[in-house]
Design a binder for these strands. Structure first.
Length: 697
DNA sequence: GATCGAAGGA
């Protein structure tokens, strides 16, 4: 047979001149040259015309190109259906193709069809079909296949057992996976790697390390895949020692050219707190894919170096690397922490524009971002649009509603969550309890606290006790809160006492305030905020002398206020200010803008009640001469007391609104709509007072 | 042909 391939376009298949070459080296030729269905179609026509359709190897190569390279399962099935007696190899290719195309159900159907047609599966078939079960999380199906492998005599095949480990681990049965591993008489590196992968999917990081040590002891050589698994575990556990050992191994063995390996190394260093080492590795990479960028960005984000995370994201875009949903999760999480509302909104727009898949994780990150920036409506909107939601999404929603002053609505969603059979976890209850606290629902709070253990088997942690103290104290039941602390099964920490102390100011309870500070001094003697809080308790009942005394006591003890860092976002630009920092290029501009705004607000006939704020401001000016403008502005507004980590967001609308005839509306509405103040991780909305912290202005 | 990398909430 010596037929010229006249149907082949010369540019796609330049090397093929005669069909006689085709069966000899079909794989490389077809796999490498076929770029489109049209190419396949041409070869397919020839295979039929020339009778090669009867040649199993030619058909298999054609199927491989169609199902595995071009991933066109419809076309692959069409070819397959023309074959009169398909061999197991042909079935295997189709099964693999269905797995690759995330269609394991069809793979299983094909396997059944194979049995009906009395075609005996081989070890590869079992391996492929176990993978289908693994993707489907079909434990029962997997077990049936395992029984089948035993009967067919393939039970001891390495291929089968490796996938079996993977299948059991993916179905959450890590113990059975380990049993398969332990019972294997001969292990290969892949076997060990399958077990590492199993532990990785189950987040059993310690087990990865233990198994790796076993591997080293048994003098078994490891490979790049092993190192990637172990490095991931080192990152999760903060095991820098082993991580560095592997790092040295990689350098000594000249493996630094492997991008995947170095990406794991970057991730490990970042998670172990060596973010700058991670960065220098990242900078040295000759080529960076989206995973490498994402690893570095998430490294900064998790190290709370959010500014650098956002800067790197910008750089990534300049390099024209397309971010994926995972990149966006880290970027949005950084925006949430920084309160970078405009940047985060842009990210949301970007996600929609690029049709980046709204996964549960991405959706939840978006929700969290909106909630933390005070835009709970947008957070809810994202939640409603999410195709898949999990306990984390519901928790973020409840938490977001609660911290934005919508406690009752948060509890309604908690009921919804229960109706839909989503099992709440310990963190969900923190949201639920803080919702009760914000809504002033003391009895409900008490009931939820009991219920979390009684009905859900969740032991309350110190954070849950803290929420209860907050519920009692905020509701004005200071004594009950104190009794509750005294009856706690664990030692109260500073946060608990601080919660009580903060409420003492609102409810003007000097005695409990003093007791709280006594306890606080034992736990954290140098925490400046606690002294300020007690001083405010005194001031709240008019004992200004005592207030001053506390502050001078603080000075005598040499306790300094933490330098404040604030940020202002104006039209998408984020400006950070530290105490004593007057050098920010935008500071004068911002100050001027807000001055003007103040004038307009005043000329609209509104005089803010800033007496208390002014008192504090003068105190602070004397004590630590805080000079950064953002905090001054906040003080001027009477919105907040100076405290580190404050974000004041001045949106574009605020300026517009002072110009756009909104002056007829009450100024509190303008404030409510336009100004949101974030103090650390708590959001403050100002209606008549702040619904988060009971502060009135 | 079986194994591997980055990810959200308090």
């Amino acid at each position: 047979m010596n037929v010229t391939l006249s149907l082949m376009p010369a540019k796609t298949l330049p090397k093929i001149t005669t069909i006689s070459e085709f069966p000899n080296n079909p794989k490389t030729l077809i796999l490498e040259q076929c770029k489109t269905i049209k190419d396949i179609n041409q070869i397919h026509t020839h295979v039929i015309k020339t009778g090669l359709i009867l040649n199993p190897s030619a058909v298999e190569n054609l199927l491989e190109s169609t199902a595995l390279v071009l991933r066109s399962m419809d076309y692959a099935l069409a070819i397959f259906n023309q074959v009169q007696q398909p061999q197991p190899e042909a079935y295997n290719i189709l099964i693999r193709g269905f797995n690759l195309n995330q269609n394991p159900e069809k793979a299983i159907l094909l396997f059944k069809q194979m049995k009906e047609n009395c075609i005996e599966p081989d070890k590869y078939t079992f391996s492929c079909i176990l993978k289908s079960c693994s993707i489907l999380h079909g434990l029962q199906e997997g077990k049936q296949i395992q029984a089948h492998t035993m009967k067919s005599g393939f039970g001891s095949s390495g291929f089968v057992q490796n996938t079996l480990i993977h299948m059991y681990a993916n179905c959450g049965k890590i113990d059975i996976a380990r049993r398969v591993f332990d019972e294997m008489s001969e292990r290969e590196v892949i076997t060990w790697n399958s077990m590492f992968a199993g532990y990785t999917t189950s987040s059993c990081w310690e087990e990865v390390i233990k198994l790796f040590q076993e591997m080293l002891k048994s003098d078994f050589g490891f490979d790049v895949v092993t190192m990637i698994s172990v490095l991931t575990a080192c990152g999760r556990l903060g095991n820098l020692e082993l991580g560095e050992w592997l790092s040295d191994y990689i350098v000594e063995n000249g493996l630094t050219g492997n991008l995947n390996l170095i990406t794991s190394l970057i991730d490990m260093y970042a998670k172990c707190g060596k973010i700058d080492v991670a960065r220098s590795l990242f900078d040295k990479l000759p080529r960076r894919d989206v995973v490498a960028w994402s690893a570095m960005i998430s490294g900064y984000s998790q190290a709370s170096r959010c500014r650098e995370a956002l800067d790197l994201f910008q750089e990534m875009q300049r390099e024209n690397i397309e971010p994926n949903e995972i990149t966006m999760v880290s970027v949005l999480s950084s925006c949430a922490v920084m309160g970078a509302f405009e940047i985060g909104k842009w990210c949301h727009f970007f996600v929609k524009k690029k049709r980046i898949k709204l996964t549960v994780t991405l959706g939840t990150a978006l929700m969290d971002f909106y909630a933390k920036c005070g835009s709970v409506e947008n957070s809810l909107d994202v939640f409603k649009k999410m195709p898949v939601k999990n306990v984390l999404s519901w928790t973020v929603l409840i938490q977001g509603l609660a911290s934005n002053g919508e406690g009752r609505k948060a509890l309604e969603y908690f009921s919804q969550m229960r109706i839909r059979n989503i099992e709440p976890n310990d963190v969900t209850f923190i949201g639920v309890l803080s919702a009760c606290s914000h809504a002033g629902l003391i009895d409900e709070g008490r009931e939820f606290f009991v219920s979390m253990n009684r009905d859900y088997g969740i032991d309350p942690r110190i954070e849950h006790y803290g929420c209860m103290v907050d519920i009692f104290a905020r509701g004005g039941f200071i004594i009950e809160a104190y009794q509750f602390i005294k009856n706690m099964p664990m030692e109260p920490n500073a946060v608990i006492w601080r919660t009580l102390l903060a409420s003492c100011k609102v409810h003007k309870n000097v005695e409990m305030g003093e007791e709280s500070l006594r306890q606080l001094v034992k736990l954290e003697p140098a925490h400046s905020g606690d002294y300020i809080l007690l001083s405010n308790v005194y001031a709240s009942v008019g004992r200004f002398e005592d207030a001053t005394k506390i502050r001078s006591e603080m000075r005598q003890k040499g306790i300094k206020k933490t330098p404040g860092c604030s940020s202002i976002e104006i039209e998408g630009g984020l400006h950070e200010f530290f105490a004593e920092d007057s050098a920010h290029p935008k500071s004068v501009e911002i100050y001027d803008a807000v001055e003007k705004m103040m004038k307009r607000i005043k000329s609209a006939g509104y005089v803010p009640n800033i007496a208390e704020a002014r008192l504090d401001a003068e105190e602070d000016e004397k004590e630590s001469s805080i000079s950064h403008h953002s905090e001054k502005l906040a003080i001027a507004f009477g919105l907040i007391k100076t405290s580190p980590g404050t974000t004041i967001r001045i949106t574009k609308n605020l300026r517009v609104c002072s110009d756009c005839h909104i002056a007829t509306k009450t100024i509190s509405k303008v404030f409510n709509r336009e100004i949101v103040v974030r103090d650390r991780n708590r959001f403050h909305h100002f209606k008549d007072g702040c619904c988060s912290c009971n502060d009135y202005w």
